[in-house]
Structures are given as structure tokens and as C-alpha cells.
């Protein structure tokens, strides 16, 4: 008799399950292996994300300033968030920024992705690189560059436009135009990333679907409406969510270009968090405001997730 005869029949194990070659202790060993792989990432996340988040949650109920003892003050910070006129104005500005930034960036990204995906476009690689360039530049650096371009006294943009008899004036100090200007800079900086995501989505769509639609007599608009858009649903949902999150966190170019002015008309929630936490040294209040922003972002993302998810289902 050989050992082969006594061995139980080999059970199928999906390739995804790691470790555990023998039947005894397989489960435990597998878990250990999984934990081993997760540990480094978890340790980093715990140290630099979860722990600070929990600390901030605790701080948000105190009057912490970073020095000495902090006092527990209950919901006082949160009450202030919803009653301080400056904070409410910053929230309004952030909503305004998001409403301007998200559709503009997403539509521009989609339009350019469609153009780049067209087989008739010459030098596609060149355009793709050019259009992606702004995304590589740091936003703070780009903001400095734009600030100088837009300068009313020494700026190139004003100088060139003057040749055509156009005066744009001091846009960054104009309470009406400052916000659209910082939005445009953010769109210029960020659209390329969304464009690449769209481009990847477009290239997933099988060409045979377009051929079939063409045979059924669908024109370009109808093909876009009935083939491209439904199949890009997932991508669009993803882009909308990340663009909205990016908009809610607007800070860099505003800090550099307007400092929240003129008359606080570009003061966003993150600018306010910076001001409260690092200028006024009111860490408790800044933490509370951060949590309010976090929850607002979470709710908005969930809504978008379900809305785009439902549309998927309707279409599918």
C-alpha cells in the first residue's frame, strides 16, 4: 500500500486563496499570510491617516491650541461652525466654486477626450502630451505663473489683450471676477487628469457597437447619446466624484492668487481651516470645521454614487 492511497482527494482551491498548502492549520496560516501582506500598508495608514483623524475628532470637542492643557467644550466648536457668518460665507463660496468647477472641468475633459479618441485627429500623441502638461505642474507654481500673467500692470495677458483693445483689468481684485478666475486656473490645471480617465473609458468601448449603430442608421450625436454615454456611465460617475472632492478641497491657487480676497469673496472652507488652525492657533475649531467638510464630502459622494449607480441599472 502506498501513501497515495490514504491521501484524501485534492480539493479545489481557488487561485486567489493564498498559503495553506496542508489541510491542518491552513486557514490560520492563510490568514497570517494575508495579514502579513496588509500590515505594512495598514501600519502606515494607521499612523498617518486613522490616528490623526481620530485625534482631530477628539480635538474638535476641545479648545485645543497645541500648547498646554486643552479643555473639553462639547459641541461649542460645531455650533460656531454653523453660526459664524465668516464660516457660512466660506461654505457658500465653496459651493459656488464646486458648482462652477465640476461641470466645467468634466465637460471640457470629456470633449477633449472624444476629440483625442477620434481616429481622424492627426498628431494625437502630441496633443495628448500637450494637453496633459498642465497637470504635471504643481498647482502652487501654476498659480504663481497665472498671477503674473494676469497682473494688471506687468502681466503679459493684459499686454497682449490690449493689442486687441480689450482690458480685463485687475481680475484677481474684482469681487465678481476673482472667483471665476481661480476656478478657471483650477480647471486648466486639472482637466487633463479627468480627460485621461475618460480616454481610458472610451477605449474600453468595443468598436463593433459603433459599427452596429452606424448600420442601424445612427448619426454621430445619436451614437454619442446611445452608445458612448451609457457605456461611459461608470467613468463619468467616478470623474464627477473626484472632481467634486477636488473642488470642495480648493486651497492652493486661492491661497497664492487671492489669499481669500477681495472682501473674502474667494475664502473657501479649506482656506478657513488653515486660517483658524495655523494663524489663529484654534486647532479645536479647525478640526471641527474639517469634520464638517469631511461629512459633507462623504454625503455628496454617496449621493453621486447612488445616482450614477441607479442610472447604470436603468440603462443596463
Amino acid at each position: 500500500m502506498t501513501t497515495h492511497a490514504t491521501r484524501p482527494p485534492r480539493r479545489y482551491r481557488p487561485p486567489g486563496q493564498l498559503g495553506g498548502r496542508g489541510p491542518i492549520g491552513g486557514q490560520a496560516k492563510r490568514r497570517l499570510t494575508i495579514a502579513g501582506f496588509l500590515l505594512p500598508a495598514l501600519a502606515i495608514l494607521t499612523l498617518f491617516v486613522f490616528w490623526p483623524m481620530l485625534s482631530a475628532l477628539r480635538l474638535s470637542f476641545t479648545d485645543a491650541s497645541g500648547f498646554g492643557r486643552e479643555k473639553f467644550i462639547g459641541l461649542e466648536n460645531y455650533t460656531e461652525v454653523f453660526t459664524d457668518p465668516d464660516i457660512l460665507r466660506a461654505m457658500g463660496n465653496t459651493v459656488l466654486y464646486t458648482v462652477m468647477f465640476t461641470p466645467l472641468a468634466v465637460v471640457l475633459a470629456l470633449a477633449l477626450a472624444l476629440a483625442l479618441n477620434s481616429p481622424y485627429l492627426p498628431f494625437r500623441g502630441v496633443f495628448r502630451t500637450w494637453l496633459f502638461l498642465p497637470f504635471i505642474v504643481s498647482l502652487a507654481v501654476a498659480a504663481f505663473a497665472w498671477q503674473y500673467l494676469l497682473d494688471p500692470q506687468v502681466g503679459l495677458l493684459n499686454y497682449w489683450l490690449q493689442g486687441f483693445g480689450i482690458r480685463i483689468g485687475n481680475v484677481l481684485q474684482d469681487p465678481v471676477l476673482a472667483m471665476p478666475t481661480v476656478v478657471l486656473v483650477a480647471v486648466w490645471k486639472n482637466f487633463a487628469f479627468y480627460m485621461i480617465v475618460f480616454l481610458a473609458g472610451l477605449q474600453e468601448i468595443p468598436g463593433s457597437l459603433y459599427e452596429a449603430a452606424k448600420m442601424d442608421g445612427a448619426g454621430p450625436w445619436s451614437r454619442f447619446r446611445n452608445v458612448t454615454m451609457p457605456l461611459l456611465g461608470n467613468t463619468t460617475g467616478f470623474v464627477l466624484i473626484i472632481a467634486t472632492i477636488a473642488a470642495l478641497q480648493a486651497f492652493d491657487q486661492i491661497y497664492v492668487m487671492t489669499g481669500g480676497g477681495p472682501y473674502k469673496s474667494t475664502q473657501t472652507v479649506v482656506m478657513q481651516i488653515y486660517q483658524s488652525g495655523f494663524k489663529d492657533l484654534d486647532l479645536g475649531f479647525a478640526s471641527a470645521l474639517s469634520y464638517v467638510l469631511l461629512i459633507a464630502t462623504l454625503i455628496l459622494s454617496l449621493v453621486q454614487f447612488f445616482v450614477t449607480g441607479r442610472r447604470e441599472k436603468d440603462v443596463g
Partner: peptide
């Protein structure tokens, strides 16, 4: 005086002779 200027910009305008 030009309008909408802050302190840093004021220094620049003076040093450029404007």
C-alpha cells in the same frame, strides 16, 4: 494711485519706477 494693490505689489511698483 492704482487700485486693488496690496503691500507687496506696492513695493514692486515703486521698484519698477511706475
Amino acid at each position: 494711485s492704482p487700485t486693488g494693490v496690496d503691500g507687496v505689489k506696492a513695493d514692486e511698483l515703486f521698484s519698477s519706477g511706475k
